[in-house]
Design a protein around this nucleic acid. Structure first.
Length: 112
DNA sequence: AGTCGCCACGAAG
DNA sequence: CTTCGTGGCGACT
């Protein structure tokens, strides 16, 4: 299996997301200096580092769950929602209930 | 090596 | 809701 350097960066960034919080594809992309959240989604689509990289903590900027395990909706997404709920991240009507749960990568940039 | 089309997104119409 | 923009990558040529 080939892991591109870009994917490696994506996985590294996602791994930084603490339990109980979530990040957006846009946020991850931005922390990577990438202008396309879609590229991030494509990288996470077939996540080879399953439990290592908590890809379930990555949601869409519109506060929707996004996708999971290659599915944009369906049972997999529901599983994702449950995983997040188990960490304290609750969703309401398919949307994140508490936006305060969003993890900003800027918190790591230690102001400069 | 150059091109084309696809994608777990996002903003705009 | 639909359409376009974006960045990166696999499949073909």
């Amino acid at each position: 299996m080939t892991v591109t350097p870009f994917q490696q960066r994506v996985y590294a960034a996602v791994s930084l997301i603490p339990k109980g919080k979530v990040a957006t594809y846009c946020g991850v992309a931005d922390s990577l200096g990438c202008g396309s959240a879609r590229a991030v989604g494509q990288a996470l689509r077939a996540n080879p580092f399953a439990p290592r990289v908590p890809c379930h903590r990555v949601i869409a900027a519109s506060l929707t769950l996004g996708g999971f395990q290659g599915q944009r909706e369906g049972a997999a997404v529901e599983r994702k929602r449950r995983l997040l709920a188990d960490e304290g991240v609750v969703f309401k009507a398919g949307k994140l209930a508490e936006p305060g749960r969003i993890f900003l990568f800027t918190e790591c940039h230690h102001e400069k």
